[in-house]
Simulated scan of single mutants.
Amino acid sequence: MKRWLASLVIMLCCNAVFSQTANLVDKEKLFDFYQTQRYADAANYLRTVYGEDITDARTLSQIGYCYLMSGNNVDAEKFYLKAYSVQPHSLPILFSLASINSRRGNIDKAKLYYGEIVKIDSNNFSVYKSLANLFASNKDSLKLVYLVKANKLNPLEGDVANDLADVYAGLQEREKAYKVLNVAIAADTGNIILKKALLPIANFLKKYNEVIASGEKILSVDNDAYVIKDVAKAYYFTKNYTKAISLFKLLEVMGLQNEATLYYT
């Protein structure tokens, strides 16, 4: 009983000391640093207030965040590692450490931290999206695995849908790519990037009228060469050769024709 009371007293004293230190922070001054994006100054200011022997994970993370936002990845990692030693199961800390290592090209370390997150929260959409982004090649089977998991958790998120469709298209699984993109487009009908990605896939699946309708709307606001090519091909396959030629000629004027477009022309 005495030992328990002694521990309680020590804990309360430590909390009191921390509270007193926290009260020394000039919140207005700190807010001004944040608002003017002087994150390095904010980090240095916090260090002068709290000193060097910081053991509170929240404070360590706050200083680490300031260094991260200032572009100082070395000091950011140092403070996040200290925070990690105090709270090894904190998702924000793990995400920050993974992000820092990813930025610095330490991909294996980043994967380890993201792996720790998966162990804690296996249904975290962001971690699967981040893991997929660590694989540069669409041919890497793990990239597909992580994109599928992320898309299953949030099929409406455009970036993941676009990346997954791209991988599916490369694997000649265009029906899957078409479905993934359509689900995301239905949730964000103004997403031109997703609509552009759908055009060549829809063309391959012989959905030519869909390509023409969607492509013409895109061309009314964005004279994209790839969209011109996709719409021109759709007109060609529906035997509207006059429209097809006019669009292929546009590519010629833009100096973007190639062997395939010249063949169709």
Rank of each mutant, 00 (worst) to 15 (best):
A202C: 11
F33T: 07
N124Y: 08
L194V: 03
A43R: 01
L171M: 13
T238E: 04
K78R: 12
T242Q: 13
P92M: 00
N191R: 10
K2I: 13
A150D: 01
K243R: 06
V183N: 12
G105L: 00
Q37L: 12
L134P: 10
V221Y: 10
A177T: 02
Q87M: 10
R3T: 11
Y50I: 00
Q257E: 12
K2E: 14
T238Q: 03
T59V: 12
T261Y: 14
A76Q: 03
I192D: 13
I10H: 02
E77T: 00
A22L: 12
N106M: 06
A165K: 00
K217H: 06
A43L: 03
L97K: 03
A22E: 10
A202K: 08
L134D: 06
Y263I: 07
C13H: 13
R104F: 09
A244M: 09
S102A: 13
K149I: 04
I185C: 05
F79S: 01
Y34A: 09
K129R: 11
M69V: 09
A83Q: 04
L68G: 15
M11R: 06
D159P: 07
K239T: 03
C66S: 14
F31P: 15
M1F: 11
K78L: 15
K243M: 13
L94F: 06
A43Q: 09
